[in-house]
Design a protein around this nucleic acid. Structure first.
Lengths: 210, 210
DNA sequence: TCGGTTAAACTAAACGGTTAGTTAATAATA
DNA sequence: TATTATTAACTAACCGTTTAGTTTAACCGA
């Protein structure tokens, strides 16, 4: 077992492994796989470069671990997206809120994913697609809207397209924020984001109901 | 002066300069600045590596020229976006169509821009923001919707948010296509895109009118 | 039409800094 | 003492850039 002076702080051994992972997360997020420097990660973690190879056998493997870590961190958040929702409006609000929360609480995840989107077959992109599918968000959204159609509260519409519209209009801002913020000269981001959620739900709901 | 057998085709000298630029465009699009290899660009252009330095003094400068070339190519397309449009519906259709055309005719531009979006202060992102502003699309959109509000055809709504919603829902798919296509298992992309335009305009219009 | 001059276009090869990865030895821990 | 953690020093390959030179072709005087 591992000692630890008293019981605050993580065990010193695993500690360095974690510090490396966190440093790598920062470096890879900022510069991508190719732009990242192993030396810089080590420095930022306060350890010798060779230790990266002791814990993670290669730069690429470390990158892969960073991606794992990213998904591990966001999973709880998106898992609970549509747990017990039965009406479309609540569902839309929840989806919009969760995506906003994801983007605000895990901006590094978004940033890394955006970079990887430039390589359509990148493992992270494939995994993001799987995760989105497994999260059930697009499916559930369509199901709830479909039920609404049966009840006559939702109008006739291609629900697959509708779901894509709603998801892209919600995630879109966070991905394009560096452009949008410049065009509109956004100062108060927090305010702007809560307005965005409102606007998206409002617009979409009005657009899709009978 | 330069001879040229007769007068078809570009002068043989400038020819290689262009080939290098085109090869660089492909390489940088696929791998980004850091991932790109000067050797590979030269090979793909069928010239000696040193020739890149003869025409473009450095890798970074070549990258910058590639970005210039990108904007040069897309500018005519987005300039004509909202030339003589007076009603909101036509405007929305035009914006949706132009963004779709941009994404389909210049996928490399989108791809490179997406990668650069991971670095919020990248010159290409700054320039994209300027270009979008100068294109007048967000401004015109708001103006037309505002006129609609005066006439009573458009309901009360934060028009800045509305414009952002419409633009993000239209560009969003093209940026997230590698994910969306996987989640929905899109086979016929052309078909899907024309459906997307329809859906976006339809949804938004219904969402914003009184 | 030729031979010589010049500038631009182009290349093979090398240079040297950088960088991912290794090794061998030391320190800490159990 | 045996195992694990950590490091300083090292290496080989890579890669952007330069150098020193060759080839090509337009120009020009005779």
């Amino acid at each position: 077992m591992r000692t630890n002076r008293d019981n605050n702080g993580p065990p010193p051994a695993e500690d360095n492994k974690q510090r490396i992972l966190q440093a790598a997360l920062r470096e890879f997020t900022e510069r991508g796989l190719d732009g990242a420097r192993v030396e810089r990660i080590a420095e930022s973690a306060g350890v010798n470069k060779a230790l990266l190879y002791y814990y993670y056998s290669s730069k690429e493997n470390l990158f892969s671990s960073v991606i794992d870590e990213h998904f591990r961190m966001i999973l709880p958040l998106i898992r609970k997206t549509l747990e017990d929702t039965s009406d479309p409006e609540t569902a839309l609000r929840q989806v919009a809120a969760v995506y906003a929360e994801l983007s605000q609480r895990h901006p590094e995840f978004i940033r890394l994913l955006v970079r990887e989107l430039a390589q359509p077959d990148s493992p992270m992109v494939v995994r993001a697609a799987e995760t989105m599918k497994e999260s059930g968000v697009p499916g559930q959204l369509r199901r709830l809207l479909s039920e609404g159609q049966a009840k006559g509260t939702i109008r006739e519409f291609d629900l697959r397209q509708a779901a894509v519209s709603f998801i892209t209009m919600n995630l879109g801002y966070f991905i394009m924020a560096p452009i949008v913020d410049r065009v509109l000269q956004i100062d108060d981001r927090k305010q702007f984001i809560s307005e965005r959620i409102q606007a998206n739900v409002d617009l979409f709901l009005r657009g899709i109901t009978t």
